[in-house]
Every structure is written in C-alpha cells, then in structure tokens.
C-alpha cells in the first residue's frame, strides 16, 4: 500500500504543479505581459519594424515577410537554399487573390 500511496502522492504533486503553472500563466502574468507587450508594440510602431530578429543569417530569414517569393533560387538559377533556417521557416502561402 505504501508504494501505491507514494505514487498517487507523486502524481498529485505533479498535477498540482501543472495546475499552478497554468493558473500562474492565466492570472499573475497577464498584467506583466500586457505592459511588456505594449512596450514592444511601441518599439514596433516607432521604428516601423516588420519582422522578428530571429534568424539574421540571410535576407529572407531576417525579414520573412519582406522577402522575395522564392528563397532557394535567390542568388542564381538552381541555387540551393544555403541556410539551415530556410528549413525551419515554412513556405509562405499567399493566395492569388485576397478578398478585402
């Protein structure tokens, strides 16, 4: 019975930690989050930024939203994709005609 109780106790503790983490994210964080995000949005607004500075290795990875439609052939015809981040960013699907 002891082993069983220890196991149930352990699982209950883990569940409690997970619930606390969830509630922490839901309740305590939003106020911090809102002010942080507002401050970041102010930077975006003031500087007119368009992209996240995640991958700085190539034009199309630094500014995926501003890049050409192709990346693999950007340098010369049949040029392969040089950069590892190229395999992380999914191809962007832009519909031929977008309705307003």
């Amino acid at each position: 019975m002891i082993k069983g109780k220890i196991f149930i106790g352990f699982i209950a503790l883990e569940c409690l930690m997970l619930v606390s983490a969830y509630l922490h994210g839901r309740t305590i964080q939003p106020s911090n989050q809102a002010s942080q995000w507002q401050a970041k949005r102010a930077v975006v607004l003031r500087l007119g930024l368009t992209d996240f500075a995640l991958w700085t290795e190539a034009r199309y990875t630094r500014h995926p939203s501003q890049a050409d439609f192709f990346s693999a052939f950007q340098d010369f015809p049949a040029s392969p994709d040089h950069f590892p981040a190229g395999s992380i960013i999914a191809p962007i699907h832009i519909p031929a005609k977008e309705t307003p």
Binding site: F52, A53, L54, W55, T56, E57, T61, F83, P84, A85, I88
Partner: peptide, 10 residues
Amino acid sequence: VIKGWSVLFP
C-alpha cells in the same frame, strides 16, 4: 536547434 547559422540569436 533552431539557431541555424545566425551569429546574433535572441
């Protein structure tokens, strides 16, 4: 894993 070849990665 996701850093790739970026020298500056946030």
